[in-house]
C-alpha cells in the first residue's frame, strides 16, 4: 500500500480552505472574518508549494509565487484591520451584521 503524498497535501489544503470559508461566512466578529480569509489564502499557498514539489514540472517558481501571495495577503490584512478600527471609531461596533449602511 502506498499513499500518494501529493493527494494528501491537496486534500489537506481543501479541508483548510473549506473551514476558512465556513468561518468567513458564519462568524460575527469582523476580525475573525478577516482571519478566516487569511486561512483560505494559506490553503492556496500550501497548494502552490505542494505543486512546486509534486507537480508535472517541479520547480522553485512555486515557492516564489507563494512568497508573492503571502505579501499580498499581509497587505490585505493590514488594510483590513485599519478599516475595522476606523469603522469601530465611527460606529462603535465590530459586528459584521451591523455593517449594512450600503443596504439602505
Amino acid at each position: 500500500m502506498t499513499i500518494n503524498l501529493a493527494t494528501s497535501y491537496l486534500t489537506l489544503a481543501a479541508i483548510l480552505f473549506c473551514i476558512g470559508l465556513f468561518g468567513a461566512l458564519t462568524k460575527r466578529n469582523a476580525v475573525i472574518v478577516l482571519l478566516s480569509i487569511e486561512v483560505m489564502l494559506n490553503a492556496v499557498v500550501l497548494n502552490l508549494i505542494a505543486f512546486s514539489k509534486y507537480g508535472i514540472v517541479p520547480s522553485i517558481t512555486g515557492q516564489i509565487f507563494s512568497l508573492f501571495t503571502i505579501v499580498v495577503a499581509a497587505a490585505g490584512a493590514a488594510v483590513g484591520v485599519a478599516i475595522l478600527i476606523a469603522l469601530f471609531r465611527n460606529r462603535g461596533t465590530s459586528d459584521i451584521t451591523e455593517m449594512n449602511e450600503l443596504k439602505h
Partner: peptide, 21 residues
C-alpha cells in the same frame, strides 16, 4: 510563514481585537 503569519498577522489581529471590543 512563521514570521509573517504566526508573528505579524496574529499579533495584528490581536491588536485589532484589543482596539475594538
Amino acid at each position: 510563514q512563521i514570521l509573517i503569519y504566526a508573528g505579524a498577522v496574529s499579533i495584528l489581529m490581536i491588536f485589532g481585537i484589543m482596539l475594538t471590543k
